[in-house]
Amino acid sequence: MEIDRRGLLKAAGLSLLGLVGGSVWYVISRAKLPEPSPTPKTLVGKKWGMVIDLKKCWGTDGCTDCIDVCHRVHNVPRFGNPKDEIKWIWTVPYEKAFPEHQLEFIEEDVRARPVPVLCNQCDNPPCIKYCPTKATWRREDGVVMMDYHRCIGCRYCMAGCPYGSRSFNWKNPRPFIKKINFDFPTRTKGVVEKCNFCQERLIQGLLPACVEACKERALIFGDLNDPDSDVRRILRSRHTIQRHSELGTKPKVFYVL
């Protein structure tokens, strides 16, 4: 059997054509699935934001209600050490939350007061630029989302976030969750996670869990696009600050003192 170059090329070409044609046919032959339809409650044209009233927050000493409830409903594991730690909302001393404020002559007491911090759900989020697989992105309603199905665990978004809002699953988190909430997925080892502004609750028309849990009503949540919303009212009437607004990230979590 003799095969010359021309023959070989022809055969190779035909097989290649067959392969390509076959796969094209495979794709075309599969009919499109029915399109999902939006629910009446799907939130379109909104831009979610939060105001944290620190005066009210400091009303009760040592209160961790918002943290507890958030970590419970979102199956956030507790490792009990800072190395593996995962957190969605937590507190830091005032001077750490706002290092740009000159606090030289302020009372010692204020510097150390706990400020609740969480993902700022930036309107111009730096983290999403870095993700090589689009596993994190900003949704139309302004929520910066994480797709745990797609995250490859490179942790570049953690390097991109100037607020340290993101946590990584260094271990399998399941054994470290006291009681699993079956309405929300857990995560696996090797992916990055963070606060999702309770988008799973927003979609049902509910307020974020932390907002609901706060007895002092220190957390106020609402639509920044709606001039009559509670958040907009506060933003109009009081002086608010954002964390590191000089970085141009446009945080959507505001603080009032």
């Binding site: 999902p36 339809s37 939006p38 629910t39 799907t42 949704r139 797709d147 199905h149």
Partner: peptide, 12 residues
């Protein structure tokens, strides 16, 4: 649909 588009209702 749920994770990336925020649509949670399926019409069969």
């Amino acid at each position: 649909s749920v994770v990336r588009k925020g649509i949670r209702t399926y019409t069969g």
